[in-house]
Structures are given as structure tokens and as C-alpha cells.
């Protein structure tokens, strides 16, 4: 229920931040309207960093505590991170074409290391599909998640360490936090978008974590839990005989809920 409120708040915040970025602030004097893409582009990139940082920390949590809930956080955050990385790259391309004159430059360090970041975490998600054993999968994923996280600071500082096409950060660099290289309304639009995206990220992470837990529970059921539950149900004959839908009154009726019922009497007469 609280998650639902968070979801609504995130939706409203993202809409408000987008409207502010599009209409509430003036466009950059030199770049014009194209510069407005900076707000969702930068916010997406920051949340990609956060996602993969969380994946790495959750991986450490799994390695130390051997609790699969850490692994559920890790996979949830990695998948969301892949989404935000892809969105950051897309936004960057849409900003680059009108301003730089090109969508993409492979040789730019920021662009190349970001593409590598996307590839690493797509690989992370694919790797997870290779194993059916939850513990082995979690350990492999934790190690890969930790190694891949090395690329996060490389992406961020690439624009400072190496000579490239991409411009340095507007204010997330040590000397600029108090002196951002943009006027206050631009900074507000960026911080607003970042806050809104962070709300949305939190909601997505909670829901994706719930999905990961549900998947783990189903795997567990297939693996032997089903046997346990079946024998428990057999001990209580009334439960086993009841239709599945009736046993779960809390769930809404499924799509096919209406069709099987008329059939049931016909089948019974045969």
C-alpha cells in the first residue's frame, strides 16, 4: 500500500520535473532547446551509477551473509540499472546530434566506457540465466557485479582524466558542488529531475525486488518445496481439493475466471 503511494508520488514528480525542464526554465543561450535534454539524460546516468553501486553492495551482502534476499536486491538493481543506462545513452544521443553534430563517437572515453557499462550489466543479467542453482548463481553474479562496478568511477571521471568530446560534469565534480557551471534555474531543473527519477527508481527497485522474491519462491517450490507443500496439503484433504482460485481469496479474479465455470457442469455430466 505504501509502495502504491510512492508509485503515484514518483509518477507525479516525474511529470512535474519534465514540465519544469521543458517549460519552466529558459533554454541555454548557445545550445537552445536541445540543452533541455540534459535533465533526464544526467538524471538517468546518475541512477545508473546508483543501481550498479547497489548491485555491488548487495553482492557483498550475499557473499558475507549467504541470504538470497541480498541476491534479489542485486538482480533487481542491475536490471533497473541497465534500463537507466540505456535511457541515458539514448538521451545523450538525442542531445549530441543537434549540438555536436553526431549521435555517437566511439573513440570518446565517456561514451565508450558507458557503452562498456551497458554491455557489462547486460552480460551480468545473461550470466544469471546460466545457472538454476540459486546459491551458485548468486555467488557468480556477486563476483561479476563487483568486478563490473570498477567501471562506474571510470565512466564518471573519464571526462576529467582523458581528453574527449564529452564535456565535464556541471556540478558533480569536487570543485563545482558549491560553484556549479550553470545558472540556478538550470541546477534546480536538474536536481528536480534527479529527485523525481530517484523516487521512480525506488519504486521500481521495490517492485522488481518483489518480483525477484516471487521468482525465487517459485524456483524453491519447483525444486522440492512443492513436495513438502503437497504432502502438507494431503494431510488436510479439504485444502487440496479446493480450486486454486478459491484458495487465494485475496487475489482478483483471473482473466479466464469467467470461461471455465460454465464448462464445469458440462464436464461433470460426462
Amino acid at each position: 500500500m505504501k509502495t502504491r503511494i510512492l508509485g503515484v508520488a514518483a509518477l507525479l514528480a516525474v511529470i512535474a520535473a519534465a514540465l519544469f525542464g521543458l517549460y519552466g526554465v529558459p533554454a541555454d543561450l548557445n545550445q537552445g532547446d536541445a540543452q533541455r535534454i540534459m535533465y533526464p539524460h544526467v538524471a538517468s546516468a546518475w541512477l545508473a551509477y546508483l543501481s550498479f553501486g547497489v548491485t555491488a553492495l548487495a553482492g557483498i551482502g550475499w557473499l558475507i551473509r549467504r541470504d538470497l534476499r541480498f541476491d534479489a536486491v542485486a538482480v533487481a538493481s542491475a536490471e533497473i540499472g541497465v534500463l537507466f543506462t540505456a535511457l541515458a545513452i539514448w538521451g545523450g544521443m538525442m542531445w549530441a546530434r543537434p549540438v555536436w553534430g553526431v549521435f555517437w563517437q566511439w573513440e570518446d572515453p565517456r561514451l565508450t566506457t558507458t557503452a562498456l557499462l551497458l554491455a557489462l550489466y547486460v552480460g551480468y543479467l545473461l550470466l544469471r540465466r546460466l545457472s538454476d542453482d540459486p546459491a551458485r548463481r548468486a555467488t557468480r553474479a556477486a563476483v561479476v557485479g563487483l568486478v563490473a562496478a570498477v567501471d562506474i568511477p571510470i565512466v564518471h571521471f573519464s571526462v576529467i582524466w582523458w581528453r574527449g568530446l564529452h564535456q565535464p560534469p556541471t556540478f558533480l565534480s569536487p570543485d563545482k558542488i558549491l560553484h556549479p557551471s550553470a545558472p540556478l534555474p538550470f541546477v534546480l531543473a536538474l536536481v528536480g529531475m534527479l529527485g523525481a527519477f530517484t523516487l521512480a527508481w525506488t519504486w521500481l527497485l521495490i517492485r522488481r525486488y518483489q518480483l525477484a522474491r516471487a521468482e525465487l519462491a517459485r524456483e524453491d517450490a519447483v525444486r522440492g518445496g512443492l513436495v513438502r507443500r503437497a504432502s502438507a496439503a494431503a494431510a488436510r484433504p479439504g485444502v487440496a481439493a479446493r480450486p486454486a482460485a478459491a484458495a487465494r481469496p485475496g487475489l482478483p479474479a483471473s482473466d479466464d475466471g469467467g470461461t471455465p465455470q460454465p464448462k464445469a457442469p458440462a464436464e461433470a455430466t460426462q
Binding site: 526554465v25 529558459p26 541555454d28 543561450l29 548557445n30 545550445q31 540543452q35 540534459m38 549540438v99 555536436w100 553534430g101 553526431v102 563517437q105 568530446l165 564535456q167 565535464p168 560534469p169 556541471t170 557551471s181 550553470a182 545558472p183 534555474p185 538550470f186
Partner: peptide
């Protein structure tokens, strides 16, 4: 290709 800096101006 145009290379711009990180300074934005209202």
C-alpha cells in the same frame, strides 16, 4: 564535430 564546454548560460 562541435565540442562545447559544461558552462550553460540563461
Amino acid at each position: 564535430v562541435v565540442k562545447h564546454d559544461e558552462n550553460y548560460v540563461a
